[in-house]
Amino acid sequence: MFQVYCEFNRVVGQGLRENFFDALDRFSPSLMDLFRKKRGLTGQILTDLLHKTKVNEPTHIRCLILRGLPVILGDDPSAFFRNCSDVNDNGLYSQTAVGILCMDEENSTPLNPSKVGIILEGSVVMDNLANLPQAFCLLFGLIYALHLDYPKYMKNTFNFVQQLPAALLGFKRASPRHGISHGNPEISCCRHGNHDAAVRSGAMRMADSRSSRTRSRNRGIKGHGGKA
Rank of each mutant, 00 (worst) to 15 (best):
R62A: 05
R82Y: 04
T53G: 01
T59Y: 12
V71K: 11
K52F: 07
K52C: 12
V55T: 15
I72E: 05
D76F: 08
G74P: 04
L64Y: 06
P77R: 11
G68M: 06
L73V: 03
H60G: 09
D75Y: 00
C63F: 08
P77F: 10
I61E: 00
C63Q: 05
K52S: 15
P70V: 02
E57Q: 13
L73P: 03
T59W: 09
L66S: 07
D75M: 00
I72H: 06
V71S: 13
I65Y: 00
G91S: 10
G91C: 05
S78Q: 08
L69I: 00
T53H: 04
F80T: 00
P70C: 03
T59D: 06
S85V: 10
C84R: 14
C63D: 09
K52N: 11
D76M: 09
L73F: 05
F80A: 01
P77K: 09
D76S: 13
V55F: 15
T53A: 02
V55C: 11
H60D: 14
G91H: 07
R67Q: 06
V55Y: 15
L66G: 07
I61Y: 01
L64D: 04
L64S: 01
H51C: 06
A79N: 15
T53E: 00
D89V: 03
K54S: 10
A79C: 14
F80K: 05
I61L: 09
G91Y: 04
P70D: 02
N90Y: 15
R82V: 15
P58Y: 02
L64M: 05
V55I: 14
S78W: 06
A79V: 09
I72T: 10
R67D: 04
D86S: 15
T59S: 09
N56C: 04
A79T: 14
P77A: 09
E57V: 07
C63M: 07
V87G: 06
L73G: 03
E57P: 04
L64G: 00
L66V: 13
P70W: 01
N90C: 10
L69C: 01
L69K: 03
R67Y: 03
D76H: 08
R67E: 08
D86Q: 13
G68H: 01
L64A: 02
R62Q: 13
L66W: 10
V71C: 11
D75H: 00
D86I: 09
F80R: 06
I61V: 15
P58I: 07
P70S: 06
G74V: 02
E57Y: 13
A79D: 12
G68Y: 02
I61K: 01
N90I: 13
K54Q: 11
G74I: 03
I61A: 00
N88V: 13
L64Q: 01
R62Y: 06
H51N: 07
G68L: 04
G91W: 02
T53S: 04
L66I: 15
N83M: 12
G91D: 08
H60R: 02
L64W: 03
N56R: 11
R82L: 07
T59F: 12
N56P: 04
P70F: 01
S78Y: 08
N56H: 13
C84V: 14
V71Q: 15
I72K: 03
I61R: 04
I61M: 06
G68V: 05
N56K: 12
T53N: 01
T53R: 04
G68A: 09
H51G: 00
T53M: 03
C84I: 12
K52D: 08
N88S: 14
N88Y: 11
R62W: 05
F81W: 11
